[in-house]
Amino acid sequence: MEALAKAIGLIHIAASIALLNGLLTTFGQAKIASTAIESIARQPEAADSIRSAMFVGLAMAETSGIYGLLIAIIMLFANPLVNQLVSLIG
């Protein structure tokens, strides 16, 4: 039982580390959004095409954040290695 508790604690720490990539993802998305707003302010007649390009860029930048989220979810809810981890600890 104690080994399982240790394993669950380790997995939660690992999941939170995997979610730390949200820092860089958010930074990149903020840069995309600020540049797009600058371009729209400079050229308001091109707002529609800039907006659609901005959404595609945001989605591309979001991909790495989503990968981190999925890795965290897999580690928490569908971890294939948890039995081996428990047997190694205990």
Partner: peptide, 16 residues
């Protein structure tokens, strides 16, 4: 892979 994970991750995060 990236196309499907993007949609799946976004919808799953809302559900969770």
């Amino acid at each position: 892979v990236s196309l499907s994970f993007r949609l799946f991750g976004n919808m799953l995060s809302g559900t969770i």
